[in-house]
Nucleic acid binder design. Structure first.
Lengths: 211, 211
DNA sequence: CAGCCAACCAAACAGTTGCTTGGTAGGCTA
DNA sequence: TAGCCTACCAAGCAACTGTTTGGTTGGCTG
């Protein structure tokens, strides 16, 4: 019971509820906070920064959220849930090993494109936030991610599509780091699409840069 | 003239100066600060944290340094100077293109091993610190690093040892990110040597993971 | 119209932050 | 022995931090 579930559309009054407004202000504030956390860091963003960006006073944030921590918590946990569901789908799918790896990489770059702030926050703050009980799930998710990737890579080795002379653990770290760190320079709406970047990265990852 | 050069051994008193003590306390404090900055982040480390770790009071730090900012400044600029001298040596050397690239990668992993805290700080805080005038040199150094790598890669393409179908700019980012991000999990003195990691990374980078 | 409620304001709070000040202990040098 | 210097202490300050409290506004509902 971390977050008081934001009352999904009260079934008692299904009249002319302005559907989009529902909890829209809350979501809007979360988005503003996410962008600031991503840009300046969690600790380095004050509740007054967030409130200023939203055009309200800092105290008013506490009408919507329990604390500043609760804001990142909601931002990260929501995103992670979505992301890992997607990973699981790939792993459970019936593509051949190489295609699965490609799919997982493309999926990640798509996430960087569509959830840029969330990815950036996770990349930059996971270590620090992970030291608090509240964010224990971050480490769990990390382990879960590792499990998915190791499984994909072992499928690849056993399927005969991957080299056998590499340390799987290091390959996993290589892929993980390379993919997610792109959030540092990739800009949604910029000159490069996430598909283009994924293509190039896969070309290097799979076949190397040597002739 | 950012930092008041720490008076290199007063030439007037060449008597029995305890050579190693010279500015040793200062260096010791910088080391302590560097480790804390690397671990917890710059903004998230207080001058009291540093002082506690050194066994003194926070105010006493200001006998040695002008400010907390001046500490990171000295840590980063000193390290960068050393690092880029090494890069320049590789670029100016007479190895063949492929060997130069390998050398540059190995050099970087060695830096992660031997200057772990400095690399971590640079990786985590460069974006934030770069917004201050004082740290303008960080962006310059970044551009310099890019220039070195692009040159190495173009030598590789023209020398016929690299694929020609890749976007050089993306390859550069790929290498840069992949190498430096390893500071997040690599631990000096741990089970893996930096040479081992460099070997594996080079194997993947040059020839890919596909069979 | 009365009542309600989400969204917000205004003002304050206690704790933490980087940094300053004036002073002191102890070792070295002349 | 006198003077000096490095390294530090003790105490405090103003600015900023996350958070709390009681009150106000305007729109919706019955």
């Amino acid at each position: 019971m971390t977050t008081p579930t934001p009352s999904t559309t009260p079934a008692t009054t299904p009249s002319t509820t302005p559907a989009t407004t529902e909890t829209s202000r809350r979501a809007e504030l979360l988005g503003i906070a996410a962008n600031l956390f991503a840009e300046k860091g969690f600790k380095n963003t004050t509740v007054r920064d967030i409130a200023d960006a939203a055009g309200i006073l800092s105290g008013s944030l506490y009408h919507h959220f329990d604390s500043k921590e609760a804001m990142v918590d909601e931002i990260l946990s929501t995103f992670q849930e979505e992301l890992f569901a997607a990973y699981d789908d790939v792993l459970a799918g019936d593509l051949d090993p190489r295609a699965k790896i490609e799919e997982a990489v493309r999926l990640s770059f798509a996430a960087i494109d569509q959830h840029h702030a969330e990815v950036a926050i996770f990349q930059n703050e996971a270590d620090y936030l992970g030291t608090f009980d509240r964010f224990g799930y971050l480490a769990e998710r990390n382990a879960q991610s590792r499990a998915v990737w190791i499984a994909l890579l072992e499928e690849g080795v056993q399927g005969g599509v991957l080299r056998t002379d590499l340390d799987i653990e290091l390959v996993y770290r290589f892929i993980r780091d390379t993919v997610w760190v792109a959030v540092r320079w990739y800009r949604p709406g910029g000159p490069l699409t996430h598909e283009t970047v994924a293509d190039q990265y896969l070309a290097i990852l799979l076949d190397g840069i040597a002739r």
